[in-house]
């Protein structure tokens, strides 16, 4: 199917200008590609930071909505989660 489409499309008159036109369009794609790569690096950093924060919240027991303000351990808070699901939604 691709071969059929390619055979139907008109040939591009590249000549000597072809390399300049290709260069200009490659620049645009390179800019977008570099940007996407930078975003991917940032995303992985955010993911790593979130993992760190999650481990900190688990250690200190301050992260969840079921944490007792009196300083109850995270494990105890998890037990309460099963007992009182309605109160957290309220």
């Amino acid at each position: 199917m691709v071969a059929t489409i390619l055979s139907e499309t008109p040939a591009l008159p590249l000549h000597t200008a072809g390399k300049y036109v290709a260069g200009a369009y490659i620049v645009l794609f390179a800019i977008v590609l570099i940007y996407v790569a930078i975003m991917a690096i940032r995303l992985s950093r955010i993911e790593r930071d979130l993992g760190e924060l999650l481990s900190i919240s688990e250690r200190t027991g301050t992260g969840g909505p079921h944490t007792n303000p009196a300083g109850e351990q995270a494990g105890a808070g998890t037990e309460r989660q099963d007992q009182q699901p309605e109160s957290t939604l309220a």
């Binding site: 499309t9 591009l12 008159p13 590249l14 200008a17 072809g18 300049y20 036109v21 200009a24 369009y25």
Partner: peptide, 28 residues
């Protein structure tokens, strides 16, 4: 846009195929 630039827009009389840069440079 790319389809229009390369398969729809006609070649310019003076610059020919080189004028296709116009469609990326000027909007940028």
């Amino acid at each position: 846009t790319l389809s229009l630039v390369f398969f729809y827009a006609p070649l310019e009389a003076e610059q020919g195929f080189l004028q296709k840069i116009f469609y990326v440079h000027v909007p940028l």
